[in-house]
């Protein structure tokens, strides 16, 4: 699919800031993956959490992504939004905000759902770990 030069999702695809390969962190507290039917696209979400005042907060998020450009762009958008979120905040991230911010066309909206699924899996994974593992 061609894209206007200044399309928000295109800019994020060309220069993502939250790719796992660019992250210095090697220990993650929550890891989750999701893929689309036929595995045309897949995403991994990596969460680092810290516990302050009895509440877990995400202090860093990173992604891996294989798929069309919008998958990379959505993963990067979610990772940016997750910073300082509680688990509950993260679970309630609004997909429509991603669609709006990235100017996704209707046929591209599956990408936000894919990342959301990977994020849910990562959050479940983080909650399943003992608190002592949190940095």
């Amino acid at each position: 699919m061609s894209a206007p030069a200044a399309s928000p999702w295109l800019l994020r695809f060309l220069a993502p800031r939250h790719a796992l390969c660019d992250h210095a962190i090697s220990q993650w507290h929550g890891v989750g993956e999701a893929d689309t039917p036929g595995e045309d696209a897949r995403c991994g979400m990596y969460l680092a959490l810290a516990q302050n005042d009895g509440e877990k907060r995400i202090v860093a998020a990173a992604f891996t992504a294989f798929g069309p450009p919008v998958v990379v762009a959505c993963a990067d958008w979610f990772c940016q939004r997750l910073n300082e979120c509680t688990i509950e905040d993260a679970r309630s991230l609004d997909l429509r905000a991603a669609e709006h911010d990235l100017a996704l066309a209707p046929e591209q909206r599956y990408a936000a759902l894919l990342i959301s699924d990977a994020l849910s899996a990562a959050l479940d994974n983080a909650l399943a770990r003992p608190c002592s593992n949190l940095g």
Binding site: M1, G67, P68, P69
Partner: peptide, 10 residues
């Protein structure tokens, strides 16, 4: 190891 649409767009 790369997605076709991503490669082309990139």
């Amino acid at each position: 190891g790369v997605h076709g649409e991503a490669l082309r767009t990139g």
